Lab assay of single mutants.
Amino acid sequence: EPREEEAEKYIKRANGDYDKAQELAKKDGNEEIAEAIKEYKKR
């Protein structure tokens, strides 16, 4: 799923820090991806 791939990219950029990844996504205006990262975190 493209959303998950995007989320993974942010998580990698944030060195595995989900909260930081979420912030990066929000900064880029990717609210949807920020949500996907939140879902990811719950797994």
Rank of each mutant, 00 (worst) to 15 (best):
K27Y: 11
A34M: 09
K26G: 05
R43K: 15
G29S: 04
D19Q: 07
K20H: 07
K41Q: 15
A34W: 07
E39F: 06
I11F: 04
K20D: 05
K20G: 05
R3I: 15
K38C: 05
Y10R: 00
Q22K: 05
E39R: 10
G16K: 03
G29E: 04
A14S: 05
E31S: 09
Y18D: 01
N15I: 02
N30Y: 14
P2E: 14
K38A: 13
K26N: 08
R3A: 12
E1R: 14
K12T: 09
E23W: 10
D17R: 02
K26L: 15
A34N: 04
E32I: 09
R13L: 14
I11H: 00
D17T: 00
E1D: 15
D17I: 03
Y18R: 03
Q22H: 10
E4D: 14
K42Q: 13
E39D: 09
A21W: 00
K38Y: 10
G16Y: 09
P2N: 14
K38L: 13
R13G: 06
K41F: 08
A36W: 15
D28E: 12
R43T: 11
K41G: 09
E6M: 12
R43L: 14
A7G: 03
E39A: 11
R13Y: 10
K27H: 10
E23D: 10
Y18T: 05
A36C: 06
R13S: 08
K12Q: 11
E39L: 09
I33P: 01
I33L: 11
G29I: 01
Y18C: 05
E23C: 04
K42A: 12
K38H: 07
K38N: 07
N15E: 08
K9P: 04
I33N: 01
Q22I: 15
P2Q: 14
Y10F: 04
E6R: 06
R43H: 12
Q22M: 15
K26H: 10
R13W: 14
N30G: 04
E35H: 08
A21E: 00
E23I: 08
I11L: 12
I37T: 01
K20P: 01
K41V: 07
K12D: 08
G29W: 02
E4S: 11
E35R: 08
Y10I: 02
